[in-house]
Design a protein around this nucleic acid. Sequence first.
DNA 1: CGCTATCCGATAGCGGAACTATCTATGATG
DNA 2: CATCATAGATAGTTCCGCTATCGGATAGCG
Lengths: 225, 225
Amino acid sequence: MRIGELSNRSGVPVPTIKFYVREGLLPAGKLTSPNQASYDSGHERRLRLIRALLDVGGLSLAAIGDVLRAVEDPAQPVHKVLGVAAKRLTPPQRDEPGPESEDAREEVAALLKRRGWRAEAHGPAGESLAEVIVALRRAGHGGFVELLDDYAAAAEPVARADLDYVGRRVAREDLVESVVVGTVLGEAMFGALRRLAQADASARMYDGDGAGPGGDGAEPRGAEG
Amino acid sequence: MRIGELSNRSGVPVPTIKFYVREGLLPAGKLTSPNQASYDSGHERRLRLIRALLDVGGLSLAAIGDVLRAVEDPAQPVHKVLGVAAKRLTPPQRDEPGPESEDAREEVAALLKRRGWRAEAHGPAGESLAEVIVALRRAGHGGFVELLDDYAAAAEPVARADLDYVGRRVAREDLVESVVVGTVLGEAMFGALRRLAQADASARMYDGDGAGPGGDGAEPRGAEG
DNA sequence: CGCTATCCGATAGCGGAACTATCTATGATG
DNA sequence: CATCATAGATAGTTCCGCTATCGGATAGCG
């Protein structure tokens, strides 16, 4: 297919497709003549993946580029690709280290030990956890950190489900892509579910189980949607 | 204190503080003379909150402004503030609705029913869940949607923990702020934990159960290709 | 009283991200 | 043959989150 059709199918404007090619996010079409290139379903799929990671996953184009290149590189072990995805999922920190960071890092390490997790406390995920802890404390909500273990307990079955989904893949590239999609879009999915579950818990708490003081009283209907 | 000290304490440059004031994120200092204003610990706290939501939570300044104004408005019921936070947590969608969105929305409604959640299927959280589902399908990973129930099950205890934390607050503004912080920073916290748990699960799966170091960071000895 | 550091408030500029517009040359298509 | 889409290149645009600079006023010190 030509670029116009690719644009129609994917909903991405032609100039944007060209831009993505320039940025190395999308392989160029196969030139059939000096001013004509043909694109296939692989391009379409890639384009949809880019948009998903961009719009829903919230990754930057630079991050997407890194991830996609890692996915395509057969020399990259799976967990390294995941590492790239994880690193680029969170914006770069801008704090200087400081002693509070040290404390937070130790807490992360202690948590890993407590739960017997085989993960590097100083990898990207551990670092971003430490950053969150620091940020919570600095914002005056250090108490929230007490929920760490509850959160960690909930994260285990989620991670198992992720890996289970991934485990059904056969081809390496499929597998790696699944990991990335699962990590990035799964985060968005869980976030939305969590907010729904919060709404439910909040409705029960503030409306009571059928009526109640409600705290504020501007609730037209407590349930359903 | 004067602006210089506020800057030193919070680590935010003076021009940036002024900028935040201009943007309505931070109340202006109390003028003691035409060119002198004094700031208090409330300003400092607010500043730390802004930075936490910005750096770790990934909210935009505009979103933070909306949230903070909602927090400060005593007329806003708690769940509305949460709604603002939830809405601004996810970037605005840019898809036209289409039939796939309709399917996804129905799936969300069905999920809520299945789990007996009292939440609005068409509120911001429900909408973003539907968007994630659409994005997964469009990216060719519709299978991931099968994990919805596993994810939802894990989200329940997390939401309970959140509400439990929030429930310990007394003053309304404290309470609302806790909800926001919990929602926004909690998401980052869970995301990091999930990636750690994935690293653990992945290490067990790919390295075998007693082999070497797992994790997603730098692998000293090449585990594979 | 003078001196300098700081401050307020306002305006303008900057750098990065993600496009978007325009242009030329060339070949595809009816 | 005329029109149209395309490749490839360069330049421009919009938004965001600051950052720099400036004019005037004041603080506080000797």
